[in-house]
Design a protein around this nucleic acid. Structure first.
Lengths: 169, 169
DNA sequence: TCCAACTTGACAACCAGTTTCCATTTTTGC
DNA sequence: GCAAAAATGGAAACTGGTTGTCAAGTTGGA
């Protein structure tokens, strides 16, 4: 399938026969992509009737969990995305009345953000629905199996920090 | 942290105490998001010197693995994204000389696409690098552990098809 | 203290994908 | 064999994110 016209003399660039482990690892990557897509889709559906998308839910979560007003760059750091991306959401949600700006004692131009009562209400309800959903997804699965998968995924995530394999580029 | 002002009388909308399993399941979701981000980042880096991004690598893969020229909607179906998204990539890659259009015997306006020799070369090299990478990621992990994780993820993916928990919306 | 380095907000361009709409082609069911 | 339905390409507007640039605010070290 994947072999078009293979070179006839060794080039050091031949296709490599992957081990079973490497093959399974590749399948894990593909499955993660698929799960990610489905999680986003379902997550959006879960909060759609609250008038937010999951990106906004995430921003609400980052601030709420910190327990205190945060600046855009602080939220970005907590979420692992860029400050510009967060700023876009904050502007939109502030306009919608979900966040309020608070003066930042440590910076003249840089506001802090805290959810309005309406923002808090929406976030609480989103979390309530999420818990119900997680409960449903876990139903009937043995605790140790779930925990084992989580452990593996964390290990996998850590391994993904490693630099890519060397090439004689 | 997450408790702002709880209502004093039962509303049927109180926060729910998640089970340990639900908590772990939630953590799995968050970890999947993080892994997904890291995979995209690393995947892009892996093929960057080939002049493509991983989105284009994926399109090359969908066609190559099918073994025959495909139309844009067919590729989209194989990849699980919309035909418009695929079309954008195909247009770009055709302009770059990575795909060539073939007449579609079954449709006058709808072309089929097949990688040019250059497109094939780039895809083979991308796959070679991916195999090396997967090999590295699997290194030292017991085969059964990897296989177990894959099995869990597939099961999880299947469970994500289920409709969201009912609400008395 | 003052200057350089860093942080921040605002803005623009871009990427990868989506939805929506339109015109055309193809398929189908009667 | 024809009309209606479905598939297709193309374009535009939108989303959620990115990178890059600029100007202004803040911080830290000689």
């Amino acid at each position: 399938m994947t072999h078009f016209d293979e070179p006839k003399v060794p080039t050091g660039r031949e296709a490599i026969d992957p081990s079973d482990e490497a093959r399974a690892m590749t399948e894990i990557m593909l499955t993660v992509f698929r799960i990610n897509g489905r999680l986003l889709e379902k997550g959006d559906a879960l909060v759609r009737t609250l008038g937010i998308a999951s990106a906004q839910w995430q921003v609400l979560g980052a601030v709420s969990l910190s327990g205190k007003p945060l600046s855009a760059p602080q939220i970005a750091a907590a979420m692992g995305i860029t400050r510009q991306g967060v700023q876009k959401q904050l502007n939109r949600m502030t306009k919608k009345g979900l966040f309020e700006k608070r003066p930042n004692p440590r910076h003249e131009r840089s506001n802090l953000y805290w959810p309005t009562p309406e923002g808090q209400r929406i976030y609480s309800e989103a979390m309530r629905r999420e818990t119900l959903w997680a409960q449903q997804l876990a139903e009937g699965l043995p605790g140790p199996e779930i925990q084992g998968a989580l452990d593996f995924l964390k290990k996998f995530h850590r391994r993904l920090e490693a630099p890519l394999p060397e090439e004689g580029e």
